[in-house]
Amino acid sequence: MATTQHYLWATGHFILLLSSLRYFMAWVLFRGPSPWWYKVSFTGALMSYAIVCQKSLGSPQPNITWVKKALLDENVQYFAVAIFWWFSKPVAIALLPYAIFSLFHALTFSRTTLMPQFLPPGPPATSGGQPTPHPVAKRIQLWVKSNYDSAMKLVAFIELGILFRVVLGAITFQNSFLTPIIYAHFIRQRYYQSAFTRVAITTVYGYIDGYVRRAGSPPVLVNIWDKFTMVVSRWAGSTLAPQQPAPAAGAGAGAQ
C-alpha cells in the first residue's frame, strides 16, 4: 500500500511534469515562457528528490562516511543540480532530463497505484490465478519497458547538450561562468556512474575526433583538439577514448 510519503513523491513528479510541459509549450510557441513555471517545475523536482534522498540516506549525519555516501548517490547529485537550477537564470533545456524522468515515474505510479483504484483488473490468465492488469495498465507497462533505455540514452545526450549550452552561455554572458563549471563536474560524475552517459560521451567524442582528423584538416586544429582532450582526460581522471560500457545502472531522478 502506498504511503503518504510515496504520494508526496509522486505529486512532486506530476508537478514537475505538468509545469515543465506548460513552460515548454510557451517556449516553443515563442510566447515568452514565465520564469514562474520554471521555478514551479524545479520545486516539484526538489520535492521528489528530497523525499527519495531522505529515504535512501536517512537524516543527514555529521560524519565523513555519510557525506561520501551522499556525494556518490545519483539522486543527491540530481537534487543538488536542481537546487542550482532553481536559483539560476532559467535555462530551458535544463528541464528536459527531469521532465523525462518524471514522465516515466508518473506513468509507473499511475499504473501501479492509481489505476487499480479505478480500473477493474482483467480475468486471470489461468484458472485460479491472479487477476491480470487492466488493458490500459498493461499498455503503459509495455510502453515504459520498451522505451526506457531509449529515453535514458536521450537524457544522456541532452545533458551533454546542456553542458554545451551553458559553456556557450558563459561566453556570450547569458549565464554565469560558474554554471558550466558546476555542470561539468556533474557530467564527470555521471560518466563514472551511468553507462548511458559513457556511451553518449564516447559517441560525441568519436564524431568530433573523426571530423577533426579528416583528410585535409589543418594540423593546428588537430593539435588544439589533442591538447584539449588531454586536459579534459586528466581532469576527469580517465581517458575519453571509446571503452566498453558497464551494465546500465538504475534510473536516478527520484526513483522510489
Rank of each mutant, 00 (worst) to 15 (best):
L95T: 07
P218T: 06
P116L: 02
W37C: 07
T202P: 08
A2F: 02
A125G: 14
L221A: 14
M115C: 12
G169H: 12
I83D: 04
T239C: 03
S48I: 05
A26C: 11
I140Q: 05
V136H: 11
P60F: 02
Y192G: 15
S59C: 05
L71T: 10
C53S: 04
F79W: 14
A251C: 10
K39E: 02
I83K: 07
P62C: 07
K69I: 01
G128L: 12
Q244L: 11
P97Q: 10
I181G: 00
F196Y: 11
A94N: 01
K68A: 11
F42V: 06
T202S: 15
W36M: 04
P121V: 06
T229C: 15
V40K: 01
G169T: 12
I140W: 07
P242H: 07
H134R: 10
A195S: 15
S19C: 03
T203Q: 09
G44M: 05
A92K: 03
I187M: 07
P124M: 08
P116Y: 03
K55P: 00
L119W: 02
S102K: 12
K39W: 06
A26I: 01
G250K: 09
T197C: 15
G254T: 02
A195L: 11
V76K: 13
F196A: 06
H185I: 13
L178R: 06
F104C: 02
A215F: 14
P180G: 10
A200R: 12
K145E: 09
G206K: 08
S110F: 08
T229W: 13
S88R: 07
A106Q: 02
M25I: 15
V76M: 15
L57M: 08
L221S: 15
P218E: 07
Q141L: 08
F177V: 09
W36E: 03
S194D: 03
I171F: 13
R213H: 13
A251T: 04
P120C: 10
Q243N: 08
A249G: 15
H105C: 11
V136L: 15
L95D: 08
G129P: 02
F14K: 00
V199L: 08
P90N: 00
V28R: 11
I208A: 09
S34H: 11
F79S: 12
G44A: 05
L57V: 01
V67L: 14
L119T: 01
T172E: 10
F173N: 07
I162G: 01
A246G: 14
M152Q: 06
S102Y: 14
I15C: 04
S238Y: 05
A80I: 11
L163A: 09
A125L: 14
Q117M: 03
A249L: 12
A94C: 07
A99F: 05
R165V: 10
